[in-house]
Design a binder for these strands. Structure first.
Length: 223
DNA sequence: GCGACGATCTCA
DNA sequence: GAGATCGTCGCC
């Protein structure tokens, strides 16, 4: 059904977005890229409209041979092929047979590292996000969790290998409007994995209500 | 070719 | 706390 008299706000109009990430910025080591994505904006536009989210939670996954929890660990397969392409591409896979999970390929090409975008706050296209997330209780939940975030944006496997840093792209990754203060970032082990559980490769914005879960279980100032 | 198992989410 | 639900990959 068409919307009448409604003009979608552009992602570049929100959150003081300072332009798209560059491929060079995303080609750095995966931990550094993961932290740099906190506060960034991810937008997707299709015939239904535009949804943009502010990224509030990420996890890093290492390249081939480096990180046993990563899909890239054993090398290239048909599923993970996108991980080994250029930084700035999208890698989308299906989890538990029903949820799409969205990753930003990073690091030098061929390494296979990527950042899983686990949660965001919807900044643009709230009505569209609400329609895509009928079971969500409130806007806080629209993009809370990796499967929910993909659903709110309308991302599916068909979007895998899409370029996030091209001016003409339908899915784009915008730099944060302002640097994120270090004290606003919390850190802990990744969620839902059985290998490499000691690696603290999950980062989130400690004040965001849209962080996916278990904040209380992963205090960021252990002693 | 087959079977086990997930980088999850929702509701009881 | 368990069920939904299916693609992927390791192994036979």
């Amino acid at each position: 059904m068409m919307q009448h008299g409604y003009v979608c706000p552009r992602a570049s109009d929100v959150a003081g977005a300072q332009g798209l990430f560059t491929r060079d910025q995303l080609s750095q080591e995966v931990e550094r890229v993961a932290v740099s994505l906190l506060g960034a904006t991810l937008s997707r536009t299709d015939c239904a409209g535009t949804v943009a989210v502010r990224i509030v939670e990420v996890e890093a996954y290492g390249g081939v041979g480096e990180d046993a929890a990563s899909h890239a660990h054993r090398g290239v397969t048909p599923r993970n092929r996108a991980m080994f392409e250029s930084a700035g591409l999208l890698y989308v896979y299906v989890a538990y047979g029903m949820h799409w999970c969205l990753n930003v390929v990073c690091g030098p090409a061929g390494v296979g590292s990527a950042v899983l975008i686990r949660a965001g706050e919807v900044m643009v296209g709230e009505e569209l996000a609400r329609r895509r997330r009928p079971s969500a209780r409130s806007a806080v939940n629209f993009a809370q969790g990796p499967g929910n975030l993909s659903a709110a944006l309308g991302v599916t496997g068909a979007d895998s290998e899409h370029d996030l840093v091209s001016d003409s792209s339908a899915i784009q990754l915008w730099r944060p409007g302002a640097p994120t203060p270090r004290e606003a970032i919390a850190n802990g082990p990744r969620v839902g994995i059985r290998r490499e559980v000691d690696r603290r490769w999950r980062w989130w914005l400690s004040t965001s209500p849209s962080v996916s879960r278990a904040r209380k279980l992963t205090p960021h100032t252990p002693r």
